[in-house]
């Protein structure tokens, strides 16, 4: 188990380094100059050059990369040869080209928003989606099953912006049952935090529930036709125990994998949801930064998204090994 873990962590680290090189290379190699964007309209070549030096953009890309990585782990100092000097402590991800705000500050403001949205929605979709799918598999062919299939088909074919806007229209604009979504930090006021996030949770949660219900139903049906389920029945176990112990355990395994990866990917940003409900999360920040060629933010958010996915993968691998004894050997 320890060897298994070490190997997976190593693979994760190598993956992240590779991603950081690719991302850094791609974004800092773009031809258009961020200095020009920053400097504004009436800007001469000299001041552009000065800005570029200050940002370190004139150095070779490899030097830029090592400085960037050093910044993350030990901090760095920006200087342009003049009196200008600025110390940036680890973890340093640079400064926004737009308003000079530290990227770490921006992240610490936006990441909690996205995490809050995703965690709440994931709890909803896992609870509702998986139980709906499992129950309809056990009651295959009944009215319940048909209704569940119908609802999840509708849900799965809907888009976040469509469903979210309908909810906004019905619950906020027309009836006023809920306030317009907003983000209050959980530590400040948990009730307000939840109230402000109900709509995104329901939107994302419902749509994913639909997908998870279909997935769980299919998994459960497949498992029910397995030989070991027949063996469990042949032993004389009550059906309830056959389903809850023998079938569920096997059917849930692939769902754990997919859920882990989905959650990891969503943490990288839920742009559409954030945009519809006016929430400043990681997704919205990233897309805006791309529009403004705000490279430090883009690189940081893309890297962060990669970290989420790599960590999610790692957790899924570990969970898998815990659930399935056959994985431990390989």
């Amino acid at each position: 188990m320890v060897r298994f873990l070490t190997r997976r962590v190593l693979v994760g680290v190598v993956t992240l380094i590779a991603i950081s090189i690719i991302v850094f290379g791609l974004f800092f190699a773009v031809p258009s100059s961020p200095a020009k964007v920053m400097c504004g309209k009436n800007c001469d070549a000299a001041s552009i050059a000065q800005v570029e030096t200050r940002l370190g953009l004139r150095e070779p890309i490899v030097t830029q990369y090592t400085k960037f990585m050093k910044g993350i782990f030990v901090g760095r100092t920006y200087a342009d040869g003049t009196a200008f000097e600025r110390r940036c402590d680890a973890p340093c991800l640079g400064y926004s080209f737009r308003n000079d705000e530290a990227v770490t500050t921006i992240l610490s403001r936006t990441v909690p928003v996205t995490i809050s949205i995703v965690i709440g929605a994931a709890i909803l979709w896992l609870l509702i989606g998986v139980s709906l799918g499992m129950v309809s598999a056990l009651r295959r062919g009944t009215l319940f099953d048909k209704l569940a299939i119908g609802i999840s088909l509708t849900g799965a074919s809907m888009q976040v912006f469509f469903f979210g806007l309908i909810l906004l229209f019905l619950l906020v604009y027309t009836t006023g049952l809920l306030p317009f979504p907003s983000y209050t930090p959980f530590t400040e006021n948990p009730a307000k935090w939840a109230q402000g996030l109900i709509l995104p949770w329901v939107t994302l949660g419902f749509l994913n529930s639909a997908i998870y219900a279909r997935l769980s139903r299919a998994q459960m049906l497949e498992t029910l036709s397995e030989d070991f389920v027949r063996t469990a029945r042949a032993k004389g176990l009550p059906l309830r125990r056959v389903y809850t112990k023998h079938a569920l355990r096997a059917a849930i395994t692939p769902i754990v994998t997919i859920a882990g990866l989905d959650i990891g990917a969503s943490l990288g940003g839920t742009f559409i949801t954030e945009t519809i409900f006016g929430l400043r999360g990681l997704g919205k920040e990233t897309v805006e930064a791309v529009g403004f060629l705000n490279l430090p933010i883009v690189v940081a958010t893309v890297l962060l998204a990669a970290v989420f996915i790599v960590v999610a993968n790692l957790i899924v691998d570990v969970l898998y090994a815990v659930i399935d004894p056959r994985v431990r050997l390989s």
């Binding site: 070991f228 063996t231 042949a234």
Partner: peptide, 19 residues
């Protein structure tokens, strides 16, 4: 089942629960 009558299946690998 399992007490008065019981059964052995063809493929013991798939008939035993892997977990």
């Amino acid at each position: 089942r399992g007490r008065d009558m019981s059964m052995i299946f063809q493929d013991p690998l798939s008939a035993l629960h892997p977990y």
